[in-house]
Amino acid sequence: MEEGKERFDRMACLLEIGYTRYEAEQAVNKMEQMTPRLLEQLDLWFRAGVLPEDVYEGFTVAELVEELGFTVPAAFLYLDWALREPEAAKAALAEMADGLI
């Protein structure tokens, strides 16, 4: 029950900050498998807007947001990837990014 509410709340926050429904669903699915410490910090941001200053694999959430334009949840998702697969995540970041508009 509690888990369902958390999922609903996270979805609502993501939709509010501009995620499409598909992006939000995919992101929430990944959050449910996220490193517990990161998820705790992300939920704190969702609830109170507090950003952690911890450095993970050489990155902070604020750096990823300011320098790469990630949303805060995207920065957490990236840090989780960097913890799981540091080389792949860093190599991907070193490549170009692009977009469809």
Partner: peptide, 26 residues
């Protein structure tokens, strides 16, 4: 992938990077 299921890089970089159209374009 392209019709309603595209993940933007700013929203989830891993999801963006590993989606079919991006893998194919790279």
């Amino acid at each position: 992938n392209l019709v309603g299921n595209y993940i933007r890089s700013a929203m989830d970089f891993e999801g963006y990077y590993n989606q079919p159209v991006e893998t194919d374009a790279r």
